[in-house]
């Protein structure tokens, strides 16, 4: 798909070799016994770019590092190594000097039942970012709040400003969350499972709303999800993560129609298909994702991989071109 370049012709977001290791506390007894220090290698060398108005889905199971990657992109987690550049500037360094950059990157949270303060009105919730960033006051503030509510489809906005979250349906609440993210006019939205807590019948309308926003405003979206089927319908490109690494990245069509990495193949094979005739043999991997404290040597997927051979125990595969996408596997 064609991604329009931004003013400088560069991607909005460039993540290069992003690594985040969390030390595991040994506790005082562990320190006295001089126990080995362990680190959780949550993200272990992740690189990707995101164009203006593009939707990239980071897909993976729990512990794959997708949330830590998202938090790094938001500037909330300091990387151990590697860099995150936003509109060409190093994100973390710039944020230390210039807090205003923070409003350019906003987050849409997963659970609209938990992320909205029940005591605040919709108007107060959406106005809060403007207060925090000292962006607008008085009538101008009210105007921006109303405009944001209109934009997410809570119309007429005047009717919604005075309501509290419990008076709204799940879909309306998630619209409020999006309005609060939108009111600062961000250029990048990080959406962490934005529809997984919603009823199936209303998920699509939230995704369509996000889609509309990126079309109209050119907002880029980093979409974090465990659901490959939804990612396939919503994202332009998909990056599949496993144990802190991207194992496959490419256009949504390429990844879904011809998955290359054995892990992606397994994930695609277990996507539920309603039509029995389209059902394919499911490749169910045994066991679960290993603990990121003890990442297997060689290819980190080899202990669960149906294609693994001796070489996979020693070779740590890098992303290389396979068909229309990149995959990190020496066996395909």
């Amino acid at each position: 798909m064609h991604v329009p370049a931004d003013r400088n012709g560069r991607p909005v977001l460039e993540v290069e070799g992003l690594t985040k290791h969390f030390p595991v506390p040994r506790g005082i007894i562990g320190a006295l016994r001089r126990d080995k220090r362990y680190v959780i290698r949550a993200v272990d060398g992740v690189s990707f770019e995101l164009g203006r108005g593009e939707v990239l889905a980071l897909v993976g199971e729990s512990g794959c590092g997708k949330t830590t990657t998202a938090l790094s992109v938001l500037g909330l987690v300091e990387p151990s190594a590697g860099s995150v550049r936003f509109e060409g500037r190093p994100l973390h360094e710039t944020l230390r000097r210039d807090r205003s950059l923070r409003r350019a990157i906003q987050m849409v949270f997963q659970d609209p039942y938990e992320s909205l303060n029940p005591r605040m009105t919709v108007g107060e919730i959406v106005a809060e970012p403007l207060v925090v960033h000292r962006l607008a006051e008085g009538a101008a503030r009210t105007e921006r709040v109303l405009a944001a509510l209109e934009e997410v489809g809570l119309r007429p906005a005047e009717e919604f400003v005075g309501r509290r979250p419990h008076e709204l349906s799940g879909g309306q609440r998630q619209r409020v969350v999006i309005a609060a993210a939108l009111v600062c006019e961000p250029r990048l939205l990080v959406a962490d499972e934005p529809v997984s807590m919603l009823d199936v019948s209303i998920r699509a309308e939230i995704l369509l709303l996000l889609n509309e926003l990126r079309r109209r405003r050119g907002i880029s979206i980093l979409f974090i999800t465990h659901d490959l089927a939804t990612a396939a319908l919503f994202a332009d490109r998909i990056a599949v993560m496993y144990l802190g690494r991207i194992v496959e990245i490419g256009s949504a069509d390429a990844v879904l129609s011809a998955p290359q990495h054995p892990y992606t193949r397994a994930l695609v094979s277990v996507i539920p298909r309603l039509d029995p005739e389209l059902r394919q043999e499911r490749l169910i991997l045994q066991g679960e994702t290993p603990n990121p404290i003890a990442i297997p040597p060689g290819c980190r997927f080899h202990p669960r991989c149906p294609l693994a051979v001796e070489a996979c125990r020693h070779t740590d595969p890098q992303l290389e071109r396979k068909r229309d996408q990149l995959a990190a596997c020496i066996r395909v």
Binding site: V200, S201, E205, N211, T230, R273, D275
Partner: peptide, 23 residues
């Protein structure tokens, strides 16, 4: 019928459908 259409089914192509309103 509409619940089935709202299910992310890849065999239908890239189509996102929801049911207006809420339960």
């Amino acid at each position: 019928q509409r619940l089935l259409r709202a299910f992310p089914d890849l065999s239908r192509g890239r189509e996102l459908v929801s049911i207006p309103g809420a339960p």
